[in-house]
Design a protein around this nucleic acid. Structure first.
Lengths: 214, 214
DNA sequence: AGCCTAATTCAACGTCCGTTGAAAGGCAAA
DNA sequence: TTTGCCTTTCAACGGACGTTGAATTAGGCT
């Protein structure tokens, strides 16, 4: 009988992810989530302890896989460069292109998740704690890799530049429709090729310019 | 009799700004706001039509002044360069340093407002509409100025680069505490000098690298 | 003094919130 | 077929929600 359990659990998580991504934690009710999931309200509290617990579960579900994919991308870069150091461009791309790959493989699955991460990253309420909890090990490894590519750069420069990267990246993947309005349709939030051509190069140029030997 | 009215109206807006910035629109109740403001719940509906109307009023209150300050900064740059073209660095600084000035002059006033803008910018619910409504004229003028500084660059390049700037800027000014955790205290979210030394140069380098004659 | 209006309080409305306990259903082992 | 556990439903709880209408206060004008 057990397998049926996990199936509905995933249905609840899918519904919660979709709604939390659009309206934030407080903007969604458990009843809305369960209506979207097509199940009774009480079932949410059978599978999860509380609304907050469900929120964490939504985040946790994809974080591990996403981190694995990005670790693998960085592994590949480092195995290409056992002797010499990789360029920052290669490192930044290993940080960003996995996101584009996930979106390409399964857009509906990941679009909402990225939008949710963007809101959390920019929230004083969640940003400090949750981003740290889910992403810091990966981020620290990337910063270490960048440090080797740009030797003698100061820690403060590296962390600040990563922070700028983080802001640009999360907003871009949030697909809020802002750039579509601003550009009168010249740009398309969901045009991943356009992003891939510009974001890593933009960020790498910024790192190169700031992170020099003091 | 009238002057007393505006005073409490401002007290309500201050309380709303502070709470909306921390928890978002849905995360705050009108009762919480009025408790913080030290006034009766019903007074919120005397001065504003609805919770949503109060939210818009919070945004609107500072948007005009902030836009004026930034327009003035760009005016100054353009008056320095009646013949030649200003550099992107100068233009980007005219976009960012007014924010630092406002923070320096009146930190308590502006910190919450910037945090609120960051959340709105990254929200699929509000980002597209509200940012467009409040900031597009200013942003378009800045992009025009950058276009003149980087002639023959494509519109798509300019809009995307501005989008990256927007993400980096709003996250940085949101002061979520993320960079403090990530860097184990090496960096300080509220260290405006550290930001001023790095953010404009980082962004300008990105623009320079991407926005070239096709 | 009294009046008029703007500002503020009080009490309440219907609705929905997060959460829970107990009962019902369904499948596996015995 | 019965037992037992996992899953799902049903009905409800106390409280808080956004909002409103009517009553009260306060201050400038005549």
């Amino acid at each position: 009988m057990a397998p049926r359990s996990n199936e509905t659990k995933q249905r609840i998580l899918n519904a919660a992810e979709k709604l939390f991504a659009r309206e934030g934690f407080a903007g969604v009710t458990v009843r809305q989530i369960m209506r979207e999931a097509g199940a009774d309200v009480a079932l949410a509290y059978y599978h999860f302890d509380s609304k907050r617990d469900l929120f964490d579960a939504v985040l946790m579900r994809r974080a591990d896989y996403m981190n694995d994919v990005r670790h693998a991308a960085l592994d590949a870069v480092e195995q290409r460069h056992t002797d010499d150091a990789p360029t920052i461009e290669e490192i930044i791309e290993a940080f960003t292109t996995p996101l584009l790959q996930l979106l390409a493989e399964d857009p509906d699955t990941w679009r909402d998740y990225f939008a949710l991460i963007a809101q959390i990253n920019n929230s004083p309420q969640w940003g400090g704690e949750l981003m740290t909890r889910f992403f810091d090990p990966l981020v620290r490894r990337f910063i270490d890799a960048i440090r080797r590519a740009l030797p003698d750069s100061s820690d403060a420069d590296l962390f600040w530049c990563y922070h700028f990267l983080s802001g640009a990246l999360t907003l871009t993947f949030a697909e809020t429709g802002r750039i579509d309005n601003l550009s009168n349709g010249v740009c398309d939030s969901s045009d991943m090729d356009a992003i891939n051509e510009r974001l890593p190069a933009f960020i790498a140029a910024g790192f190169r310019h700031i992170c020099k030997p003091h």
